[in-house]
Amino acid sequence: MIRIESLTKVYKAAQGDIEAIKNLNLEVDDGEIFGIIGPSGAGKSTLIRMLNLLEKPTSGSININDINLTELSSVNLREARQKIGMIFQHFNLLSSRTVLRNVAFPLEIAGVSKKKRLKKAKELIDLVGLGDRENAYPAQLSGGQKQRVGIARALANDPDLLLSDEATSSLDPESTKSILELLARIREEMNLTIILITHEMGVIKDICDRVAVIEEGEIIEKGSVFDIFAEPKTPLTKKFISAVIDFNLPPGIVKHLKEERPGEMVRVSFVGEKTHQPYISYLVKHYSVDANILYGNIDEIQGVPFGTLILDLEGDLENVENSIAYLKSEGLNVEVLDNV
């Protein structure tokens, strides 16, 4: 288990101190994929780099399996780092080494014999699906392939924890998808804990179990990915989600609708088996309102269906309100959109 307690990072600057991370607390369970999302400058990169002490915390502690990294001597820290793999946005492979020797590099540092480390490196290269490229140099590989090498390299010392610093941010959508699938697969196969930072909600949605939203050095929202998607609380989180599930209507349409008809526009989100229920037709039959579907989407988050509908409910104000109350009573999440 990873336990981060009152972690603070202050950068000294000429204009005064800059608090990049403010008294941050976080626990990550074993075998979990934990995502940290935030806008650029929020401190997420500082945070993940402190987890293996590439960045030295100003105060606070980082406990990995009950070892406090901040108290280790430099020799012991080097040893502890061998059990923490890390992958990077720009891959950071050694250009002078072949794929095979890049993957074997952490083992070389750890002092593993040449025969053993080459054997292990070959297994890992097969695991990430680069079996035929072991003698290529990084410059001869595509971005996605380079990140596969990065992942194989990060796994060489059988780490307990894998840190991912924007690992898919410089990849095209296709490669991003395959790298995320690979990360999800190795988590299953190796029972690895993964902490990743990203600015893309898609990454969180695709592979994370839990997520923390970070803004100006503080966690402003935290929870299971499903809960966060179903009920985002802060404007920032809503903004991130809308990048993946876009329920913003074109302004022209909104204007048109508002001018012509009495009624309310509502966003209804529904989860799990509720996606199978015919709420809308019930609504129309029993509350004498007309429901105009402006937007509809069903997604799947962590294997659970998750739907969003934007309805334009037309009719008497009372009927409309009753129908909204009905939807709420059925356990759906209803939000009246005043200023779309």
Partner: peptide, 22 residues
């Protein structure tokens, strides 16, 4: 590249390993 140095540090490389291997 600083990133390459950091990646080796993240693997637990010592200063002499950084010089001779990176």
């Amino acid at each position: 590249d600083n990133g390459v140095i950091e990646s080796a540090q993240s693997m637990g490389a010592s200063p002499s390993q950084l010089v001779f291997k990176v």
